[in-house]
Simulated assay, not measured.
Amino acid sequence: MKHADYLRQMLAPLGVYRLEGTCNGGELEAVGAALDGCAAALETVEREMLLTTAEGDGLERIEALLARRPVASVLERRRAALAALLRIGGDSFTLSAINDNLAGCGLNAVASETEEPGVVEVRFPEVPGIPDGFAEMRAIIEDILPCHLEIRYVYWYITWAMLQARFQTWGEIESLGLSWSALEKLVR
């Protein structure tokens, strides 16, 4: 309901005002339009002030507070990534908290401890080879992981055994017309 209609409904029972086709009616329209504008502005502010509902300016303002921007571009994943970046604090250095933050930032990365003290391995389980946008991912990962740890990045590629199981002859592989780097990532 428009605010002008609401104002008319409030004043009608008084019976004192002529609300249609008069100066009073025009004034109610003008005041109602101004109130409609205020309500729309307040609705936008209310939406953008909460991370869970922000869509544009609110997300950009939160991102401006952080050293890194999230990798995710889809709205829901971007919100989750910002929430994860905002969760990083002094108690975020357990392995599960680190992996939660990595996942929340939209990174398909998993950190794991090694037998060697002070060394952490980071894998990209769903992505064969070096992931696209790795430089940006690396910067975010190195911001999340404690600085005293050495980080080893582990990548995976197709093996000869996988190729032999999937193709009968080398001719089948050549018929695909793949480059060597595309062949290395042909794990699916």
Rank of each mutant, 00 (worst) to 15 (best):
L50R: 13
V74N: 04
R166K: 11
D100E: 15
A64T: 02
F93D: 04
L51K: 00
L178G: 03
R61H: 12
R77A: 14
E150R: 11
G56D: 14
P117S: 03
N108Q: 15
L51G: 10
Y6M: 13
P125R: 09
Q164N: 15
E115M: 04
C23P: 02
G118C: 08
E27K: 08
S73P: 00
T22C: 12
P70F: 02
G106I: 02
I173P: 03
A34W: 03
H148L: 05
G32Q: 09
A64E: 09
E20A: 09
E121R: 14
M137Y: 01
A84W: 00
N108A: 12
L176H: 14
S92I: 11
L178P: 07
E116V: 15
V120I: 13
G37V: 08
R79G: 01
L176M: 15
R69S: 12
Q168T: 14
N101T: 15
L66F: 06
E76Y: 02
T22R: 06
Q9H: 03
Y155H: 14
L28G: 09
Y6R: 13
L149W: 09
C105H: 02
A54K: 03
A12V: 04
M10Q: 15
H148Y: 10
A80G: 02
F124R: 00
C105S: 11
L176T: 02
G177S: 06
N99G: 13
Y6D: 06
A161P: 00
G37L: 14
A72F: 13
A109N: 13
S92N: 03
I98G: 00
M49Q: 13
A81G: 13
A109S: 11
R152D: 09
L7R: 08
E150T: 10
A81I: 01
V154T: 08
I173F: 15
M137A: 15
G133A: 04
R77Q: 14
G21R: 13
D100W: 11
E115I: 01
K2V: 07
I158G: 04
G58N: 05
E172Y: 10
T22E: 14
W160F: 10
G56W: 11
L51E: 12
S179C: 02
L176G: 06
N24K: 01
E172R: 02
L59Y: 06
L163I: 07
R77H: 10
Y153L: 04
G129C: 06
V74A: 12
G177T: 03
M137V: 00
L102Q: 03
N24W: 07
R77T: 05
W170K: 01
E142K: 10
S181Q: 13
G58A: 09
D57A: 05
E27G: 06
